[in-house]
């Protein structure tokens, strides 16, 4: 009886995820990479809001990630509610090679909290492939600063590279494990210079 019904019933779960951060840091790239698996060198500015659905099917369960991406230019801040309302997780993103984009996170975080106090925050550094080319001092500074922010926001910290497929899938696995409080067997990565993965606090 039990086995029979497992075959014919598909369970659906839908999650909305918002991508927030300064312009040109790689939000749209991350979304396209996760949904379509492709990466494009060229930059096309996002005018307003983009969204895409990614369906993941595991046996009898289908998870739909609805990913919403807000253009980083200040003028689109008015559309922030579209992206943040009802989101289960918000990815606060910055460019690992530009310190100023990390500093902007504070303001982004404040703005988002105004609309959505329950979404799980994530701190995501992008362009890790370029980051390793910067000086050790810069890497140290950025990594330490990011860890500090992550603690303050109570957010997992993840460095990723869209172009080289580093930690892209991991982000979404950690979202799920956080959202449903499920155990994830995945080692953290903590050392300076490595693609940071901090999610267990």
């Amino acid at each position: 009886m039990e086995d029979h019904s497992e075959d014919d019933l598909v369970n659906h779960i839908a999650l909305k995820i918002g991508l927030i951060g300064d312009s040109q840091i790689g939000k749209t790239s991350l979304m396209v990479k996760y949904v379509e698996g492709s990466f494009d060198e060229d930059y096309i500015q996002t005018l307003g809001v983009n969204f895409m659905d990614k369906k993941v099917t595991i046996r009898n369960t289908t998870i739909t990630f609805s990913i919403w991406d807000l253009g980083g230019q200040r003028e689109f801040i008015s559309m922030l509610p579209l992206v943040s309302n009802d989101a289960i997780a918000i990815l606060f993103m910055f460019d690992l090679t530009r310190k100023s984009t990390l500093n902007s996170i504070k303001e982004w975080y404040r703005q988002v909290r105004g609309f959505n106090k329950t979404a799980i925050p994530f701190l995501v550094g992008t362009k890790y492939d370029k980051f390793i080319d910067s000086s050790y001092q810069d890497q140290l500074e950025i990594t330490q600063q990011a860890k500090k922010f992550g603690e303050a926001m109570n957010a997992p910290v993840i460095f990723c590279s869209t172009s080289h497929s580093i930690n892209v899938q991991k982000i979404f696995k950690i979202i799920i494990s956080r959202a449903f409080d499920l155990k994830l067997h995945l080692d953290e990565i903590v050392n300076i210079g490595e693609p940071i993965l901090l999610y267990k606090h």
Binding site: N11, G37, V56, I58, R59, N60, T61, I63, S165, I166, N167, V168, Q169, K170, K173, I176, S177, F180, L182, K183, L184, H185, L186
Partner: peptide
């Protein structure tokens, strides 16, 4: 189901 998916080692990254 989800736990199985989450813990697959080869995930494309």
């Amino acid at each position: 189901d989800i736990v199985i998916w989450m813990n697959e080692l080869d995930d494309g990254d």
